[in-house]
Amino acid sequence: MDLNTLWFVLITVLFVGFFFFEGFDFGVGILLPFLGKDDKSRRVIINTIGPHWDGNEVWLLTAGGAIFAAFPHWYATMFSGFYIALFLLVASLVVRAVAFEYRSKSEDPRWRNLWDWCIFVGSFVSALLWGVALANLIRGVPIDGTMTYTGTFFTLLNPYALVGGLATLSMFTLHGAIFLTLKTTDDILETSRATARKLWLPTTIILLLFVAYSYVETDMFVALGINPGSIPIIAMLAILSVGTLLKAKKEGWAFVMTGITIAFSTIIVFSGLFPRVMVSTTNPEWSLTIYNASSSQYTLGIMSIVAAIFVPLVLLYQGWSYWVFKKRISKNSELEY
């Protein structure tokens, strides 16, 4: 494997980490107004991700930094091209971040209500936009011979991308609901269980619709062929099994399965792109690839050493932090948020 491929794989890994961890964060934020009937329940729900949401978000910041360092043209074309979409994403993440920290610092119900809305909207918009962005990445966007995006914001809002948005939105919400069944007790646990069961079927249908649509709209079919290989099949079986597992109250396994669906779907999207990083619909020759968009071999080499040392270290202490806060949270727990 050359360094360009290695960095493409590493960026895929960072997005897998981001969607897996921040995925349930988004889900918890989206479910907050529906599952939290009173202030105490809402606090319990927010505290399940309290110590983690910020660290989870860093997966995105690291992926962004890695794209900049390893594939500067990808970073430049995508960020300047998807301008308004990125503005909406960052704005959502900003209000959401402040909301988590400020929400329970004042007792005024209007204050708390306002921040709850910020958490909901911020999580909802982000979860939706990720699907829109991914769908446009594999479908391709208009890019000219100078690696410049020539579409507008509305180019990105095609029906296929919107189905993609619904797919990530519903998937993250389901993932979040199952996460809550693992982290709460009593009545919140029961409502989370019921919600997860209700969400499973519509989520699965939207995902299958997105898969079918992808075969029409993208060149995934050419990339994957009649026999798509084990990864898409496992992803499919994983999401199908979630329904049964939820019925059997095996939420731990259900969480593993939504995790596999998210991780493997991300891998499918990125392997569909490979070796391109941005697909040009104007002219396939003008697509950005891991070779024409990359940094020099020297830079990729240096960054590989840095990643080899620090990625395992990060996984180690993030894992430790989840272990420290492994206990379920109830209304009797000491709530910081």
């Binding site: 860093v58 910041l61 690291t62 962004g64 930094g65 890695a66 900049f68 360092a69 390893a70 500067p72 970073y75 940094s295 830079t299 240096i302 960054m303 840095v306 990643a307 620090f310 990625v311 990060v314």
Partner: peptide, 11 residues
Amino acid sequence: IFGAPLAIEAL
């Protein structure tokens, strides 16, 4: 050359 310190900062 400029992307590297930003990525390192995040990581």
